Structures are given as structure tokens and as C-alpha cells.
Simulated scan of single mutants.
Amino acid sequence: MGGLGRFAALLVPALAFAQVALAQAPAPAPAVDTMPPPAAQSVQDQPGAQAAVARLAVSAQFASDRKPIRSGLNWRILSETADGSAPRIVARSADATPNFMLPPGNYIVHAAYGFASGTKRISLGSQGVNDQVQISAGALTLAGSIGDAPIPAGLLSFQVFVPLQGNSEGRLVTGEAKAGDLIRLPEGTYHVVSTYGDSNAIQRADVRVETGKVTDATLHHRAAKVTLKLVAAAGGEAFAGTAFSVLTPGGDVIREAIGAFPQVILAEGDYVLIARQEGQVYSRDFKVESGIDRDIEVLAK
């Protein structure tokens, strides 16, 4: 065999051995990233992370004597904005002395005491703030009577006005006050209108509300309750379905009612009663005396 033939014969087994060695060799391990891990984000950088907060403790006092207000308060905390837009409410409470946990910053504290209120601007730092709001306010309770007899609360309603420029009913503060309600108001003079029943038994009075005090006001009515009847004879059975009209002597309609014996509360004075029944009209004059409740009968004849 020539030299070239002997070299080829030796090369073939060597290649075969190399292929077997490669097949038996273990697969190489995956490459390992030796770069250090990224640094952890700060609390401020992490989305949704809770910012640091501080305690804002507030209370309210009457402006006159600095006595604490222990009930009837409603608090709103508004945050000031850097772009000059309107402040927004960030917290509320109805506690007398609430504690708010808020991020440090500038806030407007608003304390409402019924129809009165006080406002204060506060800068809240990381150490927290304990501050007071002063309110110039008092309270008013209302009642009604006829002589010495109190009128049941359910038969009374009140309107409270602020007089303006000689008009005693210049601005309505509340039109839904009931007897015995505690009405919290800014210090000042108010005009009160009391209505007994639902017709013309009305009384008016000016009352003064002082800071830190409760003013009890009783308005004295001169009125009575009358029961209207259409009868065939005095003291007889009342006709059902009768239509009644109560008028002043001048013809102004005060009250209208339908029934066998409707009850009407009227101010002291003179009246005309008209009764309509099955196409017939009957009338009589009558007088209301304060505190004397009675039947007013119209004879059907």
C-alpha cells in the first residue's frame, strides 16, 4: 500500500473515535450572568407606595370665652395645590376632636357648627400639628305657647331669617325648624316667624344669639282651635262631605276644608264661615278668642 493509502487508513479510525468522544461528552453549562442586580427602588419611587404621614389634631372653641365645643361639629380638611387650582377635600370627620393622618403640606381646616363655621390655614410638618379653630356661634331653641299653656311641638313650625337693610325677613336661614330643635347659628340678631297650625296663627319676634350660649325663645300665640260643623239643629249630627270656607270680614279666604267636622287653628279675631252642601250655601259670622277651643256650627236652614 502506498504512503497515501496508509495515511487514509489511519485517518478514518481517528475520525470515528473523535465522533464517539464528542457524543459522550457532557453538554456545556449555560452561561451565567455575572452582572450585579439592579438597585432596589425607594419607597417614593415605587408605584402605589404609601407616603410618609403626620398627625393633624384639631379642636374648636367658642370665640368669646375659648370654651371647647364638644358636639355638633363637622370637619373638612382641604389640601392646597401648587398649581393654584381650587383646594380639594381630602378628609372629613364628625368627631369633636378628630385626628387626621395626612402627608406633610399646607391645608385649610374648616369646622362647621350648624349654620356657623370657622376656617384656619395650617402647615403640617413631619412632627405633626395640634391646633384649634375659633367659631363665633351660639344656639337657639324655639317653642310656642298660648297664655301659660305650651303648644304641642307637632303643631308648630318656625322660620329663621337674617334681617337685611331694614327688611326683617331679608335672608332665610332655615324654614324647617321645629319646636325644641337646637339651631346652631353665628352670633347675631335673627327674626323668627312661628306658625301654629297651617292657616293664619302666626307670631314674629327678634331674638339675639350670643357666642357660647343657648338662647331659649318662646313665641306667645293668640289663637284657638275651632271645629267646623253643618247641622240641621244646634248640637245635631254634622253633615258629611260639607265644603267649608273661612273668610275675613273683608272677604279674604283664610282656610278651606272638606268633611263632617274639620278642625282649623285660627288667630284671634272675627270671621265668616261659609258651608256648601248638595248645592246649598249656608253662612254665619263667628269670633275666635285666644285659648278657647270650641265648635262652630252652621245651621242648614
Rank of each mutant, 00 (worst) to 15 (best):
T211I: 01
A96Q: 12
A153W: 06
L11W: 15
E169K: 10
P87M: 01
G250I: 00
Q165H: 12
F286L: 03
S126D: 09
Q50R: 11
V109A: 07
K67G: 09
K225Y: 02
A91K: 14
D206V: 02
M1H: 10
G2C: 02
G105K: 05
V12Y: 05
E210F: 11
A49N: 11
D131L: 03
G250P: 00
P249W: 02
L4A: 12
E80T: 08
V53A: 04
F100S: 08
P26F: 00
S93D: 08
A232N: 13
L140E: 12
R76F: 11
L4Y: 10
P38N: 03
N99T: 11
Q50E: 11
K287R: 15
L266C: 09
A275I: 01
S64Y: 03
Q19N: 02
A139P: 14
P249K: 01
R294C: 01
D95Q: 15
G236N: 07
D181K: 07
V129K: 15
L172N: 07
D181L: 08
R171G: 07
S283C: 01
S157H: 12
L73N: 11
F115M: 10
F244A: 00
A94R: 15
A82Y: 07
Q41S: 10
E210G: 09
V281E: 15
A238L: 03
E256G: 12
R121Y: 07
K287E: 11
